[in-house]
Amino acid sequence: MPWLWYVGPCVLLVVWFLTGLRGRHEARRDRELARWRALMTPEAAPAQPGGRKADAGSDGPRPVRSLPSSIERMLQETGGGAVLARYELVPKLAYAAAVGPDAKNGSEYQVVLAKLAKGAPRLTVCPLPIVDGKRAPNTGVQFKKDPEFMEQFLVEGPDAKAIGRWLSKRIRDALLDFPDAWLFVQDRALAITVYGPVDAERFEELVITADAIFAEHGNEDAPSLLFEARSDADDEDGDDEDEDDEDAEDDEGDEDEEAAGAEGAVR
């Protein structure tokens, strides 16, 4: 069959091209993960909101082979997939992972997973879909006093009032600073995700956003998810303590009103 003389080389070329393309993608991903780890070292870490001090003796996120079972289960909430790399942010409490596509999940994404101090309402926060170039109507939990947040995010969950209390103004502001984030919360665990190929800066922004949420709902004695090199962070925290207390009182009042006015989410 003479046609095999033509088909055979073509198949080999296609296999060679796809293998090379995959190899280049994996090499790029590994470089971005290495850059992200460098950005997360104490010397390179950004200033943290509120001056929360991290472990200045750390060299950055440490690769680990596995995650705690409760954290591993949260990956299914984000879409599952093949876990390509796992990193420890806070021992036994918070981790980061890079996930690739598999037979069931076609997306590559990065995720920060953390344990919460208390049980939380089940909820999902995702960017409000764009239909025909316009934002779709927001049919989720309503935050009528925060129209900017409602223009960017769809919030869904079965208990609108509890969600309204849990998603404080500070958390909503942190999400607005990173509008590509998806947040999943269930019982005493959360996962915050950004979908797409690994990018060091976006991965760093994801951890910063997760840190703001962990600051409100993580264990009180837990360190920051970031690696802060400044030794004066505690002093700054003391200087701002009175002001933070006043802000907290205002926030609590706003959250109660938001919870009272929150309307039911779809599904």
Rank of each mutant, 00 (worst) to 15 (best):
E148K: 15
R170M: 06
D245G: 06
A94P: 00
W182G: 00
E32G: 09
L154D: 02
A259T: 05
L176Y: 07
R24N: 07
G157T: 04
F227A: 13
A265F: 04
A27Y: 05
R188S: 11
D254H: 07
A181E: 02
G57E: 10
L225V: 10
A54R: 06
P46N: 05
D247Y: 11
E88K: 13
D240K: 14
E216P: 01
V185F: 05
A160V: 08
E26G: 06
L123F: 11
G23Q: 14
E72G: 08
W182V: 14
M74W: 04
K145F: 09
M74F: 11
E252Y: 07
V185G: 01
K115Q: 08
K144C: 02
L116A: 07
A45M: 05
A45K: 02
R28E: 09
P46H: 07
E151C: 06
P91L: 00
V90A: 13
D256M: 06
A233W: 00
L67F: 12
R230V: 02
M40D: 03
H217T: 11
A94K: 01
A97V: 12
Y6L: 15
R65S: 10
V207F: 04
G50A: 14
A98T: 04
E252M: 09
P158I: 05
E243C: 03
D199M: 02
E241C: 08
V112Q: 01
A200T: 08
E108I: 05
A248C: 05
P49F: 15
A114Y: 07
P91E: 04
D180K: 12
P137L: 05
P2S: 11
D232L: 07
L12Q: 08
P223K: 00
